[in-house]
Every structure is written in C-alpha cells, then in structure tokens.
Design a binder for these strands. Structure first.
Length: 116
DNA sequence: CTGATGACGTGTG
DNA sequence: ACACACGCCATCA
C-alpha cells in the first residue's frame, strides 16, 4: 500500500486514514499525529480526527487516541464508555479515559513500510 | 464567500 | 511542568 505518498488526493487521504486504522494490530493503539505524519500531513492531525468522525463501522477508531494516550473522542462513541471497554477488552489498560501503558501499546504506522 | 469549529500537535512564556 | 496561543485544513452555518 502506498497511502497518499503516490497521490495527494483529498478523498484518498481519508481513505488512507481508514486503511491505516484498520491495520492497527489488536491490543495496540496509535495517535492522530502519527497517522497524519505517516500520510505526509505533519500537522493535519485534526483532519484525521474528522476522518474518524465520518469513519465507517469497520474502522476501529477506538484504537486511535491523542498524543498523550487520552481517549478524547470517547464522547463520540455509542455509548461513550464503549471506547474504553473495547480497549480494555483488547488488553489495553485504561484508567480515567487514559491509556496507562500507552507508550508500550503504541503502534507506529511506519512499521508497515518496515514489514513490506 | 467569510468566519467559526474541531476525535490534534507543537511552540513559547 | 503547566497554561495559553498559534497552525493546520476539511466541513458547516
């Protein structure tokens, strides 16, 4: 997968975001900034968040958090507690809407290129 | 078309 | 280390 690197088309950016989020391994999490950076948009983490808002159901958006491991978007879930529940279910320790072992559970999208 | 908003991140005081 | 400000760019009013 090339992800945005080949073509900076807007729609493909969203599509790439979804693709990356879908590729997040179970029990791991990543950040909006990491995704944005991986797709070439260093400071467009907000767009990634917007993408999540409009994300399909098959996208594990609960595995995407902000840079400090805080579940900022849990309020947008149905119900909000679902996000923490899903993460806990996958083996991620969540305390007060925040991931404890965040750094350990962090998954950088750049490993995709490494595995390719 | 202009301005405001937001599931963010980084820089500065 | 904490708080505030600015930049980022798509979407909405």
């Amino acid at each position: 997968m090339q992800f945005g690197k080949t073509k900076p088309h807007k729609d493909s950016f969203f599509k790439d975001v979804y693709a990356v989020v879908r590729l997040i391994p179970k029990g791991k999490v990543t950040t909006y900034g990491a995704i944005g950076n991986f797709l070439g948009a260093k400071s467009s983490a907000r767009i990634v968040g917007w993408a999540m808002k409009s994300a399909p159901k098959d996208v594990p958006a609960h595995r995407v958090v902000n840079s400090v491991g805080l579940l900022t978007g849990k309020f947008h879930f149905n119900p909000p507690e679902r996000m923490a529940e899903l993460l806990k279910k996958e083996g991620i320790e969540v305390k007060d809407d925040q991931i404890r072992n965040f750094k350990s559970s962090f998954w950088d999208p750049s490993v995709l290129e490494r595995e390719l």
